[in-house]
Design a protein around this nucleic acid. Structure first.
Length: 328
DNA sequence: TATCATCCCGCGCTCAAGGT
DNA sequence: ACCTTGAGCGCGGGATGATA
């Protein structure tokens, strides 16, 4: 029997134990994530200060990586993305904001018919303004149907939706994505939980959490790992995405229970101490073709903590998400 | 049972960016 | 140069679990 079919039959407790075992057998991540946390916390202020020098321009959004956050003291580099794809690099160096498309020129032309090339010019210059305008005015689409990129677009649309601060026109309330000084941030993990292969330890090249958020309100606010898929069919059913989310949730749990847990809890947006009994939510977010709700609000113990299962289903037409259903 | 702490959200203000 | 739009932020309210 192929490994994938065996994984289908596994119950959730086995999935959780498997992730815990992998993380305890490979302890290299403990020191590495301690370093990430120290660097992030040390640079939060400088990132915020530099970030305040310009505004975001839908449909262009800014993203920061762990390494760029680490180097932010010298100069702040942000990835500028359209439909979740990198289209430019923004740099803030000694109060000067510049934008460059050197690395993205080829793909910008191929996928978006954008032939505006920017060579590290000032953010306020006409060329940069025209670049922003180009993406604002163009049809929200791309020139191919690459599946990987569709998933990035769904992720991007969900992030925009969840980031709304006003509940008016907000599809799901009581949810805020975790950001670094207001910048979108992909939380890394040291494990690879792609559902096409077995869970593996991947050191620094592990999978990122698609959308890491806080959900709920007051003391009932929980860290929430959301795994996004742009398709929902028998090959990749909701439970597969959910299992992936649960395994990443196990990593978050082990991280918070490690020596640098307090630092990460602060980075994740909480001002208080870590509760004695943590609840971490795992969510699959995907189109509603097969809206499996059988696992709604089911909980599984991880030591004194627990993981709680949820779903988000929606309709996706390539441009926008509608008809949300959720157990959150 | 009452109080406390801690989040998201509503409101209103400031200011960046674009249009004219 | 002025007006419009909306991003970003601080403050306070309300909801909620923890604690005693």
């Amino acid at each position: 029997m192929p490994a994938k079919e065996i994984r289908h039959m596994m119950n959730i407790d086995v999935i959780i134990n498997e992730a815990q075992k992998l993380l305890s057998e490979n302890s290299e991540w403990l020191e590495r994530y301690n370093g990430y946390a120290e660097n992030l916390l040390a640079n939060l202020d400088v990132i915020k200060l530099n970030r305040s020098k310009f505004n975001e321009f839908p449909p262009l959004y800014f993203y920061i990586s762990t390494s760029n956050a680490k180097n932010a003291k010298l100069k702040l580099l942000l990835d500028v993305r359209y439909r979740g794809q990198s289209v430019a690099t923004l740099k803030v160096n000694k109060d000067i904001v510049t934008i460059s498309t050197k690395k993205q020129d080829d793909k910008n032309l191929r996928y978006f018919n954008c032939n505006i090339q920017l060579n590290d010019i000032a953010w306020q210059e006409t060329g940069a303004s025209e670049f922003r305008k180009f993406f604002k005015n163009r049809t929200y689409s791309r020139n191919d149907n690459n599946k990987k990129n569709e998933e990035h677009n769904v992720e991007n649309l969900l992030l925009s939706e969840f980031s709304k601060r006003n509940s008016k026109n907000k599809q799901i309330t009581g949810i805020q994505p975790i950001k670094i000084s207001g910048v979108r941030f992909g939380m890394p993990t040291p494990i690879s939980a792609s559902d096409h292969k077995e869970l593996t330890y991947a050191k620094h090249s592990g999978g990122g959490i698609d959308i890491f958020s806080r959900t709920g309100k007051g003391h009932a606010t929980y860290l929430t790992v959301i795994e996004v898929k742009d398709e929902n069919n028998s090959k990749e059913p909701p439970k597969d995405a959910l299992k992936q989310g649960i395994q990443y949730a196990v990593f978050i749990r082990e991280l918070l229970r490690s020596n640098c847990g307090k630092d990460w809890y602060k980075i994740f947006g909480f001002t208080g101490g870590i509760p004695k009994h943590l609840t971490i939510r795992a969510v699959c977010a995907m189109p509603d073709d097969n809206p499996d709700k059988s696992f709604e609000k089911q909980t599984y113990l991880i030591g004194d903590d627990k993981v709680e299962c949820h779903y988000i289903y929606f309709k996706y037409d390539g441009k926008q998400l509608t008809d949300f259903q959720t157990s959150l």
